[in-house]
């Protein structure tokens, strides 16, 4: 197994499958009366969050606690970071306190990679800028595999703001590794330069893609990262790239609708769709805990 999880590209097919299989077993713990395993007793996991996050931080916290690790939550607000401490100094401080793993979210792409050079413990990238969010890709792959029964040959449409989306980047890489066929659907202004070199097809027309899709993943329109006008208006975006009830009915009967959260209801996804039986949005959150338990177990379980 690898020492850190910084990018979905760190995982080859065998390792990614091992993580998903391990997560399947971890999921059974959620159904027990005692939702606790002794596996990581005495280890310390630090959640180092420089960006706001509810579900990812909580999910990592629950995952670490279910494995009996000690969890320290460290958010930039209200810490010495607001006094101007650098990432490196913060990292070395955590290191001195004996962190076995650091889960980091940072607004700068590549922050997790830098951190991995400074600390001895394992580093898990929980989202760095617009770069990667590998555990989200793993939980999405897990959700697709449990709902659709397989990943090989599954047709996935990733719809929306690909340019700013670390979820899309990690998903494209991981899904390609696992044999799924990915189509990116987005306005041309929200596609990154060099997208033609990604292992994915590109389309500008959502309605043309939907009938041949097994899983459609809606991305959040990230207004906080948008400094330019990437589309004329929110209503126009919703009309062309939003998933409403009519578009959902154009999907094959078995197809699922995914969203990494948090949702802009009425923007990229209609409430009718988000609350439908095809929606896996709440399931994705539950699966996130199992997948993160698997990642922490595989990264930390064998280390002395």
């Amino acid at each position: 197994m690898i020492a850190h999880l910084l990018s979905a590209a760190d995982l080859d097919r065998e390792t990614a499958t091992l993580v998903l299989d391990t997560a399947t077993e971890m999921a059974t713990v959620a159904g027990r009366e005692v939702k606790k395993l002794p596996t990581l007793r005495g280890r310390t996991v630090v959640n180092l969050f420089y960006e706001d996050s509810t579900r990812t931080r909580t999910s990592f916290e629950v995952a670490a606690k279910r494995l009996s690790a000690d969890v320290i939550n460290f958010s930039a607000k209200g810490s010495s970071v607001s006094k101007g401490e650098s990432l490196k100094d913060t990292a070395l401080t955590l290191q001195a306190m004996g962190a076995d793993a650091v889960v980091i979210r940072h607004s700068a792409s590549g922050a997790a990679h830098r951190l991995a050079h400074w600390v001895d413990g394992s580093v898990v990238n929980a989202g760095d800028g617009t770069h990667e969010h590998p555990t989200q890709a793993l939980l999405d792959a897990y959700t697709m595999r449990s709902r659709l029964g397989k990943l090989d040959g599954v047709r996935v449409a990733i719809v929306g703001d690909v340019l700013h989306s670390r979820v899309a980047r990690s998903n494209v890489t991981l899904l390609a590794t696992l044999g799924a066929e990915v189509t990116l659907v987005s306005p041309p202004t929200l596609l990154p330069v060099g997208v033609d070199s990604w292992p994915a097809a590109v389309s500008y027309d959502l309605d043309a893609v939907l009938p041949d899709t097994d899983a459609v993943m809606m991305l959040r329109v990230q207004r906080e990262r948008m400094n330019d006008s990437f589309f004329p208006s929110a209503r126009e975006y919703a009309r062309r790239y939003g998933l409403d009830g009519a578009r959902m009915r154009a999907l094959p009967d078995h197809a699922i609708v995914m969203h990494p959260g948090p949702m802009n209801r009425g923007m990229e996804i209609a409430p009718e769709v988000a609350d439908s039986a095809r929606s896996t949005i709440v399931e994705q959150v539950a699966n996130g805990v199992s997948v993160r338990m698997a990642v922490l177990y595989l990264l930390l379980g064998g280390k002395s």
């Binding site: 197994m1 091992l18 299989d21 391990t22 077993e25 971890m26 059974t28 395993l37 002794p38 596996t39 494995l67 177990y297 595989l298 379980g301 064998g302 280390k303 002395s304």
Partner: peptide, 21 residues
């Protein structure tokens, strides 16, 4: 009953794949 997650030798031997319980 898979006991992998309860073993005391994980640190010595490294992680192993889990079996079903």
């Amino acid at each position: 009953l898979d006991v992998t997650l309860y073993r005391d030798d994980l640190r010595l031997r490294g992680t192993r794949a889990l079996g079903p319980t």
